[in-house]
Amino acid sequence: MMNKSNIPEVGANFAEGEQGKWGMVIDRDLCTGCQACVAACSMENNVAFVGEEDSGYGRSMHWIRIERFWEGEYPEVKMTSQQPVLCQQCGHAPCEPVCPPFAAVHSQAEQLNLQVYNRCVGTRYCANNCPYQVRVFNWRDYTDDRLDPALVTLKNQYNPDVTVRRRGVMEKCTFCIQRIHKAQDKAKSEGREVADGEFTTACAQACPANAITFGRVDNPESLVSQLAGQNRGSKLLEELGTLPQVTYLNGG
């Protein structure tokens, strides 16, 4: 079933069949492709816009994108269900073992793929090795207001909880780790555990169709576990043995 021969066992953080910690369920049947998640993610995570020319070269920095494909030809043409693709927070992540300065590392505490911006030297090996194409690279200084005076006003919106990245740095979805930490801190100060649904990621919070659900996959009672347990779930490229933490629900 699975051929993991190309991926070394070193770096696997949990075995196949086990669960990570945080996970997401995305219902393809509900996603309308409206881009609200993309906008919400960008506003939450200080994701830079790159302009028409650079985006035409494929340098746009979306941490989450909505894929859609075509099947058939007119008039029997059909658009496949829209599918938001973001970092799958692999339990066995191909990006991690190839990073020379250990900028792509695994968080033992949160079971997430971290990207340590001040370690990153821009080799881009991680993006080359990511089968989901969800890592984006800062080809220019898109956030420097000395280079783009428009940012003098626009940067007022930047989220102070999230690092502003500069040229030469790889970045990607973090499952809104700043929100995870904030919820954990709040729960800890109140002497309790983080409740299911107490907080969510920016994309899930915005989604008008409620297609995205985020939570603890290691808690069988959580909504995300319940949804993932339905028999219409699948994971992207799971035959690669990457142990992705995002489950996609099929239509119908």
């Binding site: 309308t32 960008s42 790159v50 302009g51 658009m79």
Partner: peptide, 15 residues
């Protein structure tokens, strides 16, 4: 600018 950089849902054209 971030609305301009969003991909159109059907064509994925930006800007």
């Amino acid at each position: 600018p971030w609305l301009q950089e969003l991909a159109d849902p059907t064509t994925t054209v930006m800007w």
